[in-house]
Design a protein around this nucleic acid. Structure first.
Length: 847
DNA sequence: AGCACGCCGACT
DNA sequence: GTCGGCGTGCTC
């Protein structure tokens, strides 16, 4: 077989000019090791950089320039497979990011190596005779004392990191430079990983077992302890290598004894790599598959049929809170690994709680690897290697676990499919759902998207089944698995409260309900629905909220200029002092902190025990779990917090859930505000009465007539979808079109504004050339429209001004390609490197 | 991104 | 006259 001579390498230099493969010769000795997906160190310009092999060629291209050689192969097992390399290539197109950025997001950060410089003695063969002669006479024959010391040090160490040498001899920079110039010392670069593999001292036989056995009787009397050790090692020979520590403690011998045995040559003491296991020592209660009800059984059967056919298929598992989705995940995974294939489970970062891990570890034991943001770099690397090396069959983790390096994926599960945390906000700005579907297609695998409140994109795709990229099959589960009822939900009109003279943030109903729970010793969850920092203006008398007449999103209040602005289109109006609807003076910008709620609770119910959960109280590692455990142990009457109290928590004694202000997310300047509100209210309502005790939910609102709030209170997802889709269709928002957010930044504002305007006209010009351009109102299949430019919601970051524009498009056109092309053209014609352009395809956060 | 090459001010 | 400022150009 012909081994390839040339490798195509993507180097770790994330800029436009180097965002393409570079060709390198493969030295003979590396040919058998290199694969597509190998990580290598290559000379690049005047330094050594890390790169990934993305292609192999038998011969150098004819007429090509002369090639440099690959310097080193950095891993025995390539960190990526050809499939993942291909996926990264696809991502770079789909999300307009650099190839290297997509490759890098797939491997643990521990493998992001940087070049280290080492100094060693020069190889005499590298020196010309003349130089050699010169150096002998001038430096070696009569070296300064200083040079002698340095050379002796380097000679003794063999190889010294350059940094260390200059630290040790801070005043000898000149001498060292001279020695390097003369070739007496030389500098090498090598890629060094951020992380050491964790090793353990272990003992192993150094001779054949029968040889050792034969030697046993000949041990001198004074070496009986050594004989015992050897005997023990022979007894345990199936388990070798054996941790040294274990031998020492079991036999109660000293390290010197074992060392003596090693000196005799019978055994070897070596460093053995160990896997750090963050869950080591924890017992997981084994769990058995539960009996499925007929809704569950139907969903399970559909997925199983697809697994059995080894066919690609996407399922949208829409099940009310408590309908038993997790059990379906567990049983389909069981079936999948029974087929000899592997499964990936994606969960939102926030719900990767110990309980969640326990459910999977309890069912699948050590066949599970958990990828977790709280793991240290080393722990994460170890979990990743268990997957890469086939030691586990199931990977569970947040967004980036979608890249788990399995080679035979049968099933990818995405729990809480609607969660926005599946979209990465930094480059590569990928959506794990898209990546999951794409990967599954390559593997002939099934995808299960589970949610009680599916995203409008997924639900619409499932219902219309018109989208050829992504058309999930809908599986519905309308009943709770335990057969208990959904809690009753009551909406409290806060405008009425104000009218009746109650200026408190607690309505009379909520106050009363809380009092009852305290008497009965039951628990309450209070949700303060406050997202983001944008402020909107609302009238406390009538609930009026200032919105943009063009975009139908809330206007943002800008204190500096005292006006209201739309950050989609740039519309602005002066901030009102009285409500334009009802003339009331109770109009102001809105927002309440958890701390204020806590204070008020203490005033209303002296002695009440409150656990407050928000960014202030949960930054510390493990504090999240600690607070929840305290609440579970009934150390508090009330759990008060922001969104994080809404997700997946399950407390048997919670019978009341109160939402302080349902409106605050509703009025964020985001077209998904209604969807987010509905999802949050549905989630939090699902927290109450999960077990024997009946639950009650109170939602306080200034806009109680809003369809998001009404339908959430009626547990009516379908009605919500109907209203929301109508709304989206009229205003041309996803899922009826797709968005691309383009953000430009520059130090100088006037220049930036000009370039942003330029960007818009370049986009429009190119779209017009292709016959795409025009308003989405027109009934053409293909459409491409550009809004803006406007100042970004955060108009200045790190001394750079930011402007953005938004592309709305639909149809079978390469809109991302056009945007990318325009951005590159602009960067070139402006020949101003200081301009930065960021492209966000299918953005989730528009603020 | 780095790193080197290259062409103009303040120093022995 | 040299050390070094950071502009600009390239990296198989």
């Amino acid at each position: 077989m012909m081994l390839p001579q040339v490798a195509k390498v993507i180097v770790d230099v994330p800029v436009k000019d180097t965002d393409r493969p570079f060709d390198y010769l493969i030295p003979e000795s590396m040919r058998a090791w290199l694969e597509v997906g190998s990580r290598v160190g290559v000379p690049f310009g005047h330094r050594t950089v890390q790169g990934f092999v993305v292609g192999l060629q038998d011969h150098p291209s004819p007429g090509g320039m002369r090639l440099k050689s690959i310097q080193e192969v950095l891993d025995v097992v390539p960190p990526l497979s050809p499939e993942l390399v291909e996926l990264a290539q696809w991502m770079s197109q789909r999300y307009a990011c650099r190839f290297i950025t997509a490759l890098q997001v797939m491997v643990p950060t521990a493998l992001k190596g940087k070049a280290e410089r080492y100094i060693s003695l020069g190889d005499p063969a590298d020196r010309t005779e003349e130089e050699d002669d010169y150096s002998l006479v001038r430096v070696v024959a009569e070296p300064t004392k200083e040079a002698k010391t340095i050379m002796a040090y380097v000679a003794q160490k063999g190889e010294v990191p350059a940094q260390q040498l200059s630290r040790l001899f801070p005043d000898s920079a000149e001498t060292i430079k001279t020695l390097l110039r003369k070739g007496i010392l030389q500098e090498n670069q090598s890629i060094k990983d951020k992380l050491q593999k964790k090793t353990l001292k272990a003992v192993d036989l150094a001779v054949e077992a029968h040889e050792a056995e034969a030697a046993l009787p000949d041990f001198p009397a004074k070496a009986q302890r050594q004989r015992e050790v050897l005997q023990f090692i022979l007894e345990m020979k199936e388990l070798l290598p054996l941790p040294l520590k274990e031998v020492l403690t079991t036999l109660q011998v000293s390290a010197a004894t074992v060392k003596g045995l090693a000196d005799k040559g019978f055994i070897a003491i070596e460093d053995v790599e160990v896997f750090r296991d963050p869950y080591r020592g924890r017992r997981f209660k084994p769990s058995e598959p539960l009996r499925l009800n007929d809704e569950q059984q139907h969903a399970y059967d559909s997925i199983r049929d697809t697994l059995d056919a080894s066919r690609h298929g996407v399922f949208l598992l829409h099940g009310v809170t408590g309908s038993g989705k997790t059990e379906i995940y567990l049983q389909t995974i069981q079936h999948c690994i029974g087929q000899g294939r592997q499964a990936i489970v994606l969960v939102p970062e926030i719900s990767l709680t110990p309980q969640m891990v326990e459910r999977f570890k309890g069912r699948f034991g050590d066949q599970v690897a958990v990828m977790h943001s709280r793991l240290s770099g080393g722990e994460r690397y170890d979990e990743w290697r268990k997957i890469r090396e086939g030691k586990v069959k199931v990977a569970i983790g947040a967004r980036s676990a979608v890249f788990a390096p399995f080679d035979r994926i049968g099933l990818i599960i995405m729990d809480e499919e609607h969660e926005t945390s599946y979209k990465q906000e930094e480059s590569p700005k990928y959506h794990a759902r898209d990546v999951a579907v794409r990967r599954a297609r390559q593997h002939g695998a099934a995808v299960v998207l589970g949610s009680a409140t599916p995203s409008l994109e997924s639900y619409h795709a499932a219902r219309s089944r018109a989208n050829d990229e992504f058309a999930p099959l809908l599986l519905e589960m309308k009943r709770r698995a335990l057969g208990n009822e959904l809690p009753t939900v009551q909406i409290v009109d806060m405008r009425e409260e104000l009218k009746e003279g109650n200026r408190s943030m607690f309505s009379r109903s909520l106050h009363q309900a809380l009092g009852i729970r305290l008497e009965r010793g039951e628990q309450t969850v209070l949700l303060l629905n406050r997202r983001g920092y944008s402020t909107f203006v609302m009238c406390r008398s009538c609930g009026y909220v200032a919105g943009c007449p063009e975009c139908d999103i809330s206007l943002t209040y800008h204190q500096k200029s005292n006006n209201l602005r739309c950050h989609y289109c740039g519309y602005a109006e002066p901030a009102p002092s009285v409500c334009p609807e009802c003339g009331s003076e109770h109009i102001r910008y809105f927002g309440t902190g958890t701390q204020r709620v806590e204070e008020e609770l203490a005033k209303l119910f002296p002695g009440i025990r409150v656990i407050r959960m928000d960014v202030d109280t949960t930054t510390e590692k493990g504090s999240h779990e600690k607070l929840l455990k305290q609440f579970r142990d009934k150390k508090a009457d009330v759990l008060l917090g922001t969104q994080m109290v809404a997700k997946g928590l399950d407390f048997p004694d919670v019978t009341l859930v109160g939402v302080i202000t349902a409106d605050s997310a509703l009025n964020l300047p985001d077209f998904r505000a209604g969807e987010k509100t509905f999802q949050l209210l549905t989630q939090v309502a699902g927290r109450a009465g999960r077990h024997q005790l009946k639950g009650e939910v109170l939602i306080q609102s200034y806009t109680p007539d809003h369809y998001s709030i009404i339908h959430a209170s009626g547990h009516d997802y379908l009605a919500f979808v109907r209203d929301e889709l109508k709304h989206r269709r009229n205003l041309h928002y996803p899922p009826y079109c797709r968005l691309i957010l383009i953000t430009l930044s520059h130090e100088q504002l006037p220049l930036l504004v000009r370039m942003a305007e330029n960007m818009v006209s370049v986009l429009q010009g190119k779209a017009r050339q292709r016959g795409w351009f025009g308003s989405l109102d027109r009934l053409t299949a293909d459409a491409f429209d550009v809004l803006g430019p406007v100042a970004s919601p955060i108009p200045r970051i790190k001394n750079r001004y930011r402007f953005q524009c938004m592309v709305k498009w639909r149809g079978n056109i390469d809109a991302v390609g056009l945007v990318r092309e325009s951005a590159e053209q602009l960067e070139e014609t402006a020949h101003n490197q200081k301009l930065q352009i960021s492209i966000d395809v299918d953005p989730q956060m528009l603020m």
